[in-house]
Design a protein around this nucleic acid. Structure first.
Lengths: 168, 168
DNA sequence: CCCGATCCATTGAGAGTTCAACCACCGTAT
DNA sequence: ATACGGTGGTTGAACTCTCAATGGATCGGG
């Protein structure tokens, strides 16, 4: 247990800088959206994914993956969005277990109204403060991190799948 | 209103990659801590900051800044931590409005037990998947983002302070 | 045809966060 | 003194998220 690979002073600096920026930045973006559009970032993400889908509708599980939500979280979120009239749920045809979630015109309008402020926040606080090289590296870093996280899921699925960490 | 500087396709790729990694990574770290140590990331951060402070205690407002919490969030969090016996609150001397929060031995022990798993998660999912150059860039990127966010706060403070966005 | 395994999605409870008051105290100026 | 704006911190309600449990539907054998 004491064979933990602790962080060096320099690594701690990196870790803190990265984590602090993440926390502060996502708090900033989330608050901007809540204040100006009355929805948290997670809901905005759901609406965006729906708006990009064919026919503006998606199976619940697809929507969950696309919006990086757990199924449970998505159920609660969609219930709230439906109460706003921004989406509707209908049974999926062909599979009586499934449901499709569709973005309504009202929901699309809400998204259209929220987008300018959100994009502006992202541009000002992310793109405007970094150099083009930093941005490209940031993209690669993001991909590498995501790949590293997914790798373990796949491994768990491929392996016995009955031990080790719970799924992703 | 239509003079919004929308994101180009390439910028969208960068933004998505960055945000996705953030969401997934912090979800991963948070779940690891909850599962193995029964505390969310935010509480871990509070304990860490206390453990690094002189006498393992800090004024509530200092602790809020150090742990990137709002005052309200910190109040609730400290109340929960106190219920666990991990911290205690006492009135600050010299200012009868203030309180100091102190990490107990029990709290320190809980932190010591949580740390190995947490650090291992961070090392495996962050440091092990990136190159040294990427890590240095990531540190600079983090600093730039945080600086950009703070800039606006300072500007707000310096300016009339009675218009524009609410404080930070 | 039926059984167990799996998948889709929801539910409820409890934990954590946010926002908007709120109270008490400080400092200063009146 | 006292009034006043600003600071330190808390509170409650509404909201969101997590976790574990549930239920119905599909699928692959026996």
């Amino acid at each position: 247990m004491s064979d933990v690979r602790w962080l060096s002073a320099e690594e701690q600096e990196i870790w803190r800088a990265y984590m602090t920026a993440n926390v502060e930045f996502s708090a900033y973006v989330d608050r901007q959206l809540r204040r100006e559009s009355g929805m948290p970032m997670a809901y905005y993400e759901i609406l965006v994914r729906l708006s990009e889908a064919d026919g503006r509708c998606l199976r619940m599980s697809e929507l969950a993956d696309a919006s990086m939500s757990s199924r449970s979280r998505l159920s609660h979120a969609v219930a709230a969005l439906e109460k706003n009239g921004w989406v509707v749920r209908r049974p999926a045809d062909g599979d009586r277990r499934g449901w499709v979630c569709e973005l309504t015109d009202t929901g699309f309008a809400a998204l259209a109204e929220a987008a300018p402020g959100h994009v502006t926040a992202v541009r000002e606080k992310l793109f405007d403060v970094l150099t083009p090289e930093q941005l490209l590296t940031l993209r690669d870093v993001g991909r590498a991190i995501s790949a590293g996280l997914r790798e373990e899921c796949d491994a768990a699925r491929a392996a016995g799948d009955d031990d080790a960490d719970p799924p992703c």
